[in-house]
Nucleic acid binder design. Structure first.
Lengths: 205, 205
DNA sequence: TTATACATACACTTATGAATGTATAATCGT
DNA sequence: ACGATTATACATTCATAAGTGTATGTATAA
């Protein structure tokens, strides 16, 4: 075939990423062949191998495509100074996270792939480390905000900020997994905001 | 080779299950071939195909080998009447769960495989449903115990039992995933009892 | 004219499932 | 109780399918 413009080439690259996302999501990472992905993008393996070294690199590129913006968005809400009570900032950030998850199918698909449809082992060990890090950083950020809430006086006394942050972290992680494994069914999805309110209510003074 | 006694055959069956567990855990389910598993058990694929139809059936057998006893043990603690306060029963059951997880490497390996090293998709859909069900049942059991605690008067008022059960469920799920992904490192493991105490303390009256 | 953006073809490896082989428990008839 | 028969518990072999990475071809944008 013919050579494409640079912009066209970038579009095909994006098409491959999109095809990888849907294919990984449908069949799992291990069971998705590069031929399948290429075919889903209307291309051949040659195109895939031109743009990406192998499946692992394609996986990482697909992830970065949607992961970085999400983290930035959460941070801005979490550290926003438009909330008088830091606990409100946490509550808003948590709600916003699940709202984005509901609104952005690309992000949802990528999270589904990373959590459910990817065997975390061997050469994907580095990938796994990359997945963990945002969670760790989120834990530290939360602890800071809980400390702010403590000095603000809105926090129910008796527990250190670190313990509260751990509890919230486990709660969010578990809720995310529950949503992902149950396919974001309405019944559970509608309970999410109330669950967050309950969770935060338990630590208000 | 020669034919074995029925008891010997049962032992080789168990050897295959053990080999599958360690192999799945090391390399992931998809990347583990039946030849690898057979070799790890000191056998050939012929033995595996004799005892199991295919990899999926072997996976399910490996799971049932350790999963059923765990559920029974949790239930006995959860519904034990040796605790005057139902909240203490919940706290004890949660602590016991993570204690068993720490003590029983087989159960830990199987959970690691199911959560981290198994792509939940396609023909494993039934398997996934089997994995979800205990979680769902646990949620319902918890709700009952929270209701008992409410009528017992030890529960901090303001939240329905269903909401509290959901929160605890998400907490446990998240904590389990955290432990599994971080390889049960001591630092986090030692925090588990305190986290459970914190979690329960937040809902005591 | 050359580097790019792919498509096509090739060589190699690996896994699966079924077929076949085989020594011996287990069972059955006498 | 003992040999003959049969079913069992595997090992071995075979046929086939898929996937990967690389090498090569090629039209065209740069």
């Amino acid at each position: 075939m013919a050579r494409k413009t640079r912009e066209e080439a970038q579009r095909t690259r994006q098409q491959i990423i999109d095809a990888a996302r849907t294919t990984f999501n449908q069949h799992g990472v291990a069971r998705s062949s590069l031929a399948q992905i290429a075919s889903a993008a209307g291309l051949t393996r040659g195109a895939v191998y031109w743009h990406f070294k192998n499946k692992a690199e394609l996986f990482l590129s697909m992830r970065e495509d949607v992961f970085v913006p999400m983290i930035e968005r959460m941070d801005t809400t979490l550290f926003s100074n438009s909330y008088s009570d830091p606990l409100d900032a946490i509550e808003a950030a948590l709600k916003d996270f699940f709202l984005v998850l509901d609104e952005c199918p690309n992000l949802r698909q990528v999270l589904e792939i990373m959590v459910l449809r990817c065997e975390q082992v061997d050469e994907f060990a580095e990938i796994q480390a990359e997945i963990e890090r945002p969670g760790q950083e989120f834990l530290q950020k939360m602890e800071k905000v809980y400390q702010k809430a403590a000095s603000h006086g809105s926090l129910r006394p008796g527990q250190p900020a670190s313990a509260l942050a751990l509890d919230t972290w486990a709660f969010i992680s578990g809720l995310l997994h529950a949503l992902l494994t149950r396919g974001f069914e309405k019944k559970l999805k509608q309970q999410v905001p109330a669950m967050i309110v309950t969770h935060m209510q338990l630590r208000r003074g």
